[in-house]
Nucleic acid binder design. Structure first.
Lengths: 160, 160
DNA sequence: GGCAAGGCGATATGTTATAACATATGGAGA
DNA sequence: TCTCCATATGTTATAACATATCGCCTTGCC
């Protein structure tokens, strides 16, 4: 499966798989997958869409896990830093990783009508952007690729 | 020249070229290149780096051109909408277009140390991201490509 | 003139993100 | 055991970014 986001799928199992993967990675790398961090990842996985930091914060507050911005931002920072979640710059929002495996280059398709986000994988090519950068001495550490447009559903409605 | 940003270049002439190009495009398309909009583009071109909306606003205020956020946001909106400037999502900042010609796909190299931004051009390839999107029925309208890392200068300092 | 569209100024508000400081908690080594 | 250190958390305050809304003025068109 190349793109995750617009199709139906077994959602409970995809949450479990993500959490299990995160647990394994953390154990192997001596990272602390604390209850707070775990809970934020669960929330992101359950919602299965891009959420603002303050949306998450609200959920945390309801559950009595703290209600101040840094609580959410720190957890998100951890999750993003280790690839368990991604930040959608275009929306200033966060989303659980849809391709739980180490080291991939995510690329996102963002519907401007319903804000649904699909994650796909981006592979840099010879002679492309990355190589041009290298030739000028720029040392790329992280790349964001985000396309906006209309998802299949909204596209249809839009034409109607 | 493929990448604009880290090299030295004739800056006054590049400002003039940008403004002249914008003037032409506006005239041809019946767009109103009002003094306010023009001034914001000039400021962006003069600074030649990514600026926050509030940085621009401060400059406008100094010049007595209004000091409220919408003044800056409206002008930026116009400039971005017509391709005279670009938004750097990663920084929530704006930068003058470095490739004054119609319809290109900008891609940015952003130094995380000094926030300098270089603009290069991104060409989508057969079989890549864009095609994958199309095959799922997603209709891409706009794509953002932003790489973060260290520019040649900061990279050297970092190793030292 | 009368009208509509667009630009502009100003105020208020909403939203996202971080700074700064204080307090736990858990492990390594004396 | 105690001390030190690193890391994580809790809390307060504020910075930074963005939009909503309303009313006024100009411009262009009938």
């Amino acid at each position: 499966m190349d793109i995750v986001g617009f199709e139906k799928h077994d959602h409970t199992s995809c949450i479990d798989a993500l959490i299990a993967w995160a647990e394994t990675v953390c154990r192997e790398n001596n990272l602390q997958f604390t209850p707070g961090r775990r809970r934020v990842l669960e929330i992101l996985a359950e919602e299965h869409k891009a959420m603002g930091a303050y949306d998450i914060l609200e959920r945390l507050a309801q559950e009595g896990r703290g209600s101040q911005p840094p609580v959410a931002y720190r957890a998100l920072d951890f999750l993003v830093r280790h690839g368990f979640a991604h930040k959608i710059e275009h929306l200033n929002a966060y989303i659980a990783c849809a391709h739980p495996r180490d080291c991939h280059m995510p690329a996102f398709l963002i519907c401007r009508a319903c804000d649904t986000v699909a994650e796909t994988i981006w592979t840099p090519r010879r002679g492309g952007f990355a190589q041009t950068a290298r030739s000028t001495g720029f040392n790329i550490e992280h790349t964001v690729v985000e396309a906006t447009g209309l998802c299949p559903q909204c596209d249809v409605e839009h034409r109607a």
